[in-house]
Each structure stands twice: as structure tokens, then as C-alpha cells.
Amino acid sequence: MATAPGPKLKVATVSLAGCFGCHMSLLDIDERLFDLVELVEFDRSPLTDIKHCGPCDIGYIEGGVCNAENVQVLREFRANCRTLISVGACAINGGLPAQRNHLPLSAVLDEIYQSGPCIATGCTIPNDPELPLLLNKVHPIHEVVKVDYFIPGCPPSADAIWKALNDIIAGREPNLGHGLIHYD
């Protein structure tokens, strides 16, 4: 990776309806992390524990949109990040959480909180305002906000993430060749 010509790029990352696997894969770039931190500094991210994202150059989003909080966080990223990257299967097509999309939400909530085989009698669907409400369907993030780039994979390999980030930082469209582009 080339050295940064100017000030470091600000990067924010978040996992919406995801498993943090795409963050783990980012960490899997291993010693190349040293190169990366020469080029970027992290704003909101599980790595920094900053709670809200300020103006950033790049937003790295894993996970799809399954609840109201996901929407609010995604909008905050879109409003603050010059470039938004959709990372991994869940962000790109809803992924595992979207496997509920063929079921009515009512059936899902009922099965999980009221009528499932391991549910104690008297349990109800939680209604604490602290909990984000679920959307009827899980959506990929590009169905909610405009997205600039995509890095597919479940998760994308460290090499794919490294290549794509390099391309994007250099102002190029990410170009993943055979072996780097993967949907699984």
C-alpha cells in the first residue's frame, strides 16, 4: 500500500444485522493492519468504542437492515461518510437474517416469544422502548440508502478486503479477481 500523501482518511465501521464476521475478517489482514493505520484513523467503530460517527471519508458497513435502530445508524453513516461500502452477504443481500423474509413478522415473533417449544408459559413479546422494533422484512443496505461500493463474501476474505480498501483509498473501483470475489 502506498503511503498517505496527506492527512489520514477517517474510517467508521459498524455491524448492523450482522455477526461481526466482516469485522473479524478486517482484523485478519494481520500485519497489514500496521500499513492500514498509517493511512486511516478510525472514527465510530467497535475498535474505538466511539458511539456516533462524525464526518468521515469511508463508512464500512456489515450486516443488513432488520430493525429501526439499523435504519437510524445507517442513515447516520450515509449522512457523514463520503464513501459508503457495503461489506459481506448480509449488507449486500440481507444474508442469514433475511431468511425470515418469507415469513410474516407476526409468525416469527410469536414463535420466538410466545408459542415456541422452549418458551415458558406467560411469556409475551417484549415491548421495552429500549429495544429497536423489527422491520417487516430484512433489507440489504442498498435498498435503504445509496451505497458506493460493495465487497461481497461471507465474510469477504482478508485479502479481498485489503485489495478492495486499497483500490478505494486509491480512488479506484474495487476490482476483485478470481479467488477474491466470493459470495460465501
Binding site: 449486500i92 433475511a98 442498498h142 435498498e143 460493495f150 474495487p174
Partner: peptide, 9 residues
């Protein structure tokens, strides 16, 4: 890199 369109699910 992306399915691009809105999904029919």
C-alpha cells in the same frame, strides 16, 4: 459485486 436491484424475496 452486488445484486443492485431491490429484491423480490
Amino acid at each position: 459485486m452486488t445484486p443492485h436491484y431491490d429484491h423480490f424475496f
